[in-house]
Every structure is written in C-alpha cells, then in structure tokens.
Design a protein around this nucleic acid. Structure first.
Lengths: 177, 177
DNA sequence: CGAGGGCTTGCAACTAGTTGCATAGGCCTG
DNA sequence: CAGGCCTATGCAACTAGTTGCAAGCCCTCG
C-alpha cells in the first residue's frame, strides 16, 4: 500500500482537494497515518492517472480555484479489494524507544528530559482526543453503526495509544527516579 | 536519525557482525525498530566510512569469516549527542487502523477476518514477551539498574504495546459483533 | 569429488516519504 | 498599485527502507 488507500478512505468519506485532505488527515486518519501535503498531491496525481479518482476544478470566491477529487468506481473496487487483503502486523517504529534502551550510553539526565518532554506532548494529545470524544460522542458508542461506529472506534484507538505512552513513559521515569 | 543510532546502541551493548546484529535486532531493539540485514549492512558501511564504527575481520571455524563492528570513541560521542537531542513524538503508522476506519467501504466480514488474524498474532507476540520476562526477570525490576533496567523497561514497553493492540482490536470486534 | 545447504556479505532497482522551494491567484492594507 | 499574506498546487532533490537476487565460504552427504 501506502498512502493510496488511506486517501481513498478519506475521499469516500468526503471528496475534497489536496489541501483539504491534508487538513482532514491531521485530525482523523492522520492519527494513524501522518502525511504532508506534498506527499498527498503526489499520490493524488498518480491515482488520477490510474483512474482511481476523478478531478474537477472548482472555483471559489475569495480564494484560488481548487481541484476536488472523488473516488471512481474503479477506485472503489481497488479499495474494497485492499480492505479484504491480509495486513501483516508491522512492528511499531519508535525513536524514543531506542533512546530509552540506550540511555546508559549518554547523559541519563538529558534522556529523562527528552522523555518528560514527550510525556507532556502525549498528555496534550490525549486531552485533545478526549475533547473530540466528548464533543462528538457524548452518549458513547450507543446508536452508532457503520462508518460512524468505525470512526468512533478509531478515535478510541487514538486514546488508547496515548494512554499507552503515558503509562509506559511514567513507568520509565519512576523506575529511574 | 534512522537506523544509525539504533545500531550504535546495539553495538555498544555488544559488538558484532551485520548478521548477528540482524538477529539480535529481531529479538530486542527490533521490537521498536525493525530492520533487515540489507539495510543493516548498508548503514554499517556508511558508519564505517564516517568513522563511527571500526571493523575487524574475524575467522570462524566451520563458518565463513565475519566482519565484527565496534563503536569508536567518535561514534560514542555521536550517540551521546543524539541521545540528548529532543525527539519529536511521531505518530504511529498503522495500515490496520486505516482498514478499521474504512471497513464500511468494503466487505466488513472480510475486514473482521483481517482483524482477527492480527489479533491472534498480537497474542502470540505477547506470549513471547511474557516468556522473555519470566526467563530474564523472575524477580521483577528489583536490583536492576543502568543498562539492565533500561532493557527491562523496554521489554515492558513491548508488552504494553501488545496489550494495547489486543484490547483495541477486541473492542473493535465486540462493537461489531 | 560434486551437489546441496547454511552462513555471510553485499549490490541493484525500486518505493515511500521528507525537505526545501517555486509559482500563482486573490485578498487586504498602506 | 505595491507589498504582504493566505490559499492552493506542485517540482526537485534527497533520505530511508524494501525486495529480489547474487556470490563466496565452508561444511556434510551421497
């Protein structure tokens, strides 16, 4: 894969331009698949030549025109096929984890500072996610189904990831206190 | 960064050849930084020309000679400097998460199968980590310090990651039951 | 001896993602 | 109208990692 299918998912949820997708990503699918606008444009271009998405120029008042992308039937087929494929469980890649393991080969106090900075950041993210949760799902997952339920559950995943980091880094700091 | 510093950490723990590092990675640092032997050779070569590591050919009985790498003082400095640098909290990248979110655009039953396969895999990994924990740290972290404590804590992180996945995927499956 | 198999190193070509910058439309302000 | 700023698209060069393959060394088995 790569970004391709993530963009197809985003476009099936809601057609949009490159920049809109970039923004949308940063607060939804981007929790699990970060992407810059350059990368998004590149992939949209490729998918367009492959016929997975269609483009239409849309004029805007007060802003330059944008190119709105939408998924074609062929693109929808590609997405459906990909969804059914097995995904191998790829191991998480974390620079911070390498630092945790290597801390004794440098200045431990400095590493602990790095850890604290990261911990603070994860607290910020967790707060952010909790706000989204409160705003969009005050009643919990009751009554949700289909796409909405999936969106809820992925947000739950985002929360769980942040909780994981907070618990782990806290354990690390306490063990080295 | 990239692999570079992870390899420096591994080599400071214990000098070794490319293939040994590849094997060691797959059951230690590789829990958070997977790497193939090709990539490892490439990086070792670069680090050698930059003077971060030194090489020595070591003959073996019954096997071809190997090139054992060790960290030079210059390499140790590079590592220490990197450890003290801030690391920005990079968001996790997960193909499976994209499938979870996009499941309603394909065959949901097929996606649930994919999820179940991944869940089973995470159970296997968790069991593996728990065995390591039992074998190497029967008494828990008591008496550990420095490198050994860090190694213990990173293994704890590996366990926490697997628990995260198991809990999340289970929640997903139950919500769609 | 020769074939096969595991260990060891590595190249080549490709794919994905990052970084830095360029261009252009359209607004608003001085 | 010139300058600055925001939106919007995109190119070019680079870096990192993946995939597929090859080649040499050394042993064992037939």
């Amino acid at each position: 894969m790569a970004l391709d299918h993530a963009l197809l998912v985003a476009l099936r949820e809601q057609p949009g331009s490159g920049l809109e997708l970039a923004k949308r990503f940063s607060r939804s699918i981007g929790y699990f698949w970060p992407a810059t606008h350059q990368q998004i444009y590149k992939v949209l271009g490729r998918m367009e030549t492959e016929g997975w998405v269609s483009v239409s120029e849309v004029a805007q008042t007060g802003k330059p025109a944008k190119k709105v992308y939408d998924v074609t039937p062929a693109g929808a087929d590609v997405l459906a096929a990909w969804l059914a494929e097995p995904t191998d469980t790829h191991t998480m890649r974390s620079e911070l984890a390498v630092k945790l393991r290597g801390a004794s080969f440098g200045d431990r106090a400095a590493v602990l500072d790095v850890v604290r900075a990261n911990l603070a950041d994860h607290h910020v993210r967790l707060d952010h996610y909790r706000q989204l949760m409160k705003r969009d799902y005050t009643d919990g997952p009751v009554d949700l189904a289909g796409l909405e339920l999936d969106q809820y559950l992925v947000l739950r995943g985002g929360i769980r990831v942040e909780e994981f980091w907070i618990e782990w880094l806290t354990e690390y700091l306490e063990a080295h206190a």
